[in-house]
């Protein structure tokens, strides 16, 4: 099977994830979109690893997983803190940084 198909699948998954981040107001769903984008990147890395016949891409994918796990912990903690403060996890409501 052509390894390029995995790359295309990764691109599709990335697009879906970014669409979720950009279009959904719910912070949890947007967060899922972020995870999807990370995993799309992982898939692309593993596919490149296979294409080039090296292990670098796979090692990089492990790093991404570790970072993603940490990011999930921090991100969910922030979402819970925001929910406690505002009784809402809408992404559009907090706009204190408006210039």
């Amino acid at each position: 099977m052509n390894p390029m198909n995995y790359v295309i699948l990764a691109a599709i998954l990335f697009s879906i994830g970014s669409a979720a981040v950009l279009l959904r107001r719910n912070a949890i769903v947007a967060f899922m979109g972020v995870e999807l984008m990370l995993n799309a990147a992982n898939l692309a890395l593993v596919a490149f690893s296979r294409i080039h016949g090296e292990l670098n891409g796979q090692i990089m994918a492990f790093f991404v997983m570790v970072v993603a796990a940490a990011e999930v912990v921090v991100g969910l903690a922030i979402i819970i803190a925001v929910f406690r403060a505002r009784q809402s996890i809408s992404l559009d409501e907090p706009a204190e940084l408006k210039g």
Partner: peptide, 12 residues
């Protein structure tokens, strides 16, 4: 200044 609208999704 208008660019800084505080909307997370527009930043993204």
């Amino acid at each position: 200044r208008k660019v800084q609208n505080g909307q997370v999704r527009s930043y993204a």
